[in-house]
């Protein structure tokens, strides 16, 4: 297990280094950030002085080393637009994104598992086929379009919920949350629903496949032979077994949803990190772009590290294959 852990950690660090080099070279070498900071008509001395102050007159590899060293100290630069350290900016917007992602996952789980059980159990009737077809649509249709339709139907036509924004927030332990106010929940309903569609489709498909696979197994046959009702077999025997891969998948998809939230947050004007990155790309706020990309990549690596660790702990074969 020790060698496996070291190897996993080493792989993660190498990936992070590679990605940081790509981001660094991309952001710093493709364009000159100087003209965002200095008036193009400024005298040459001022331009030279700013270049020197920012360290932009140094060779690329030297700049990269400085960038990594300050990144290790938690300094990823200051936003040109907000005049705040970019990491601080991301930290302040992160709770909004996280609560949206968690709400989306909870909806996906609560709706997806029963629908998947139904589709798997009924095998080939029209309802099962309808559920499967809808789950294909949930994966292939662009999220922003579904979100727009939701706004038209639920906000503009029916007037049930607001079209966008976050509403009132309550502060718990220094973190603002929309989950505890009526207006916050009303604002959150549509974006959370829109974000839940993608994981919902995946959960339906996974549950359906799981039910079909397990229904052929001996323990289900024995349970049937004992005269246990089909509903009880499904819920207390089969469901218990297929929950493990579903929960693993939800862990893996958490990071994907944080990235996916970019679309949902933009449509619903939800003030999370997804809206922050789109706004930053539009005005070329480089420190925020770099900080966001590095943050999301790191989050991904940490999640896959944890998942690898858990699966390896559960299954010795994986340790052996991956360590060799």
């Amino acid at each position: 297990m020790g060698a496996f852990l070291v190897r996993l950690l080493f792989q993660g660090i190498v990936t992070l280094l590679v990605v940081s080099i790509i981001i660094f070279v991309g952001v710093f070498a493709i364009g000159n950030p100087l003209y965002v900071l200095v008036d193009p008509s400024a005298p040459a001395e001022v331009v030279q002085e700013t270049l020197r102050q920012l360290g932009l007159d140094r060779p690329l590899h030297e700049q990269y080393v400085r960038f990594v060293l300050s990144a290790l100290r938690g300094d990823l630069g200051t936003s040109y637009v907000h005049a705040l350290p970019s990491l601080e900016l991301i930290a302040s917007r992160l709770p909004a994104t996280l609560e949206l992602v968690v709400a989306g996952l909870v909806i996906a789980f609560l709706v997806g598992v029963p629908l998947g059980l139904l589709a798997g159990y009924m095998a080939n009737n029209w309802l099962a086929r309808l559920i499967s077809s809808l789950s294909i649509l949930g994966i292939s249709l662009p999220t922003f379009w579904i979100a727009l339709i939701m706004i038209i139907v639920f906000s503009l036509e029916l007037g049930w919920v607001p079209t966008g924004g976050r509403g009132d927030v309550a502060t718990v332990l220094g973190i603002e949350t929309s989950l505890l106010t009526a207006s916050g929940l009303a604002h959150m309903a549509l974006p959370a629903l829109a974000l839940s569609l993608f994981p919902l489709a995946l959960i339906i498909r996974l549950t359906r496949a799981g039910v079909r696979e397990h229904n052929r197994m001996d323990y289900v046959k024995f349970a049937r032979a004992m005269g246990i009702s089909p509903q009880r077999i499904l819920v207390s025997y089969v469901l218990r077994n297929i929950l493990i891969p579903i929960v693993t998948m939800m862990g893996l998809i958490f990071g994907t949803l944080v990235a996916f939230a970019v679309v949902t947050e933009t449509v619903f004007a939800w003030p999370g990190i997804g809206k922050l990155i789109i706004d930053s790309i539009k005005v070329s706020d480089r420190p925020v772009i770099i900080a966001y990309l590095l943050f999301v990549v790191t989050m991904f690596l940490v999640i896959s590290f944890i998942v690898d660790l858990i699966t390896a702990a559960l299954d010795p074969r994986i340790r052996l294959v991956k360590a060799s």
Binding site: I23, V27, G255, V262, L293
Partner: peptide
């Protein structure tokens, strides 16, 4: 995820 890679490239 695809969105993240596309966004990263467009940002760069």
């Amino acid at each position: 995820p695809a969105v993240l890679i596309a966004l990263m490239l467009v940002a760069l």
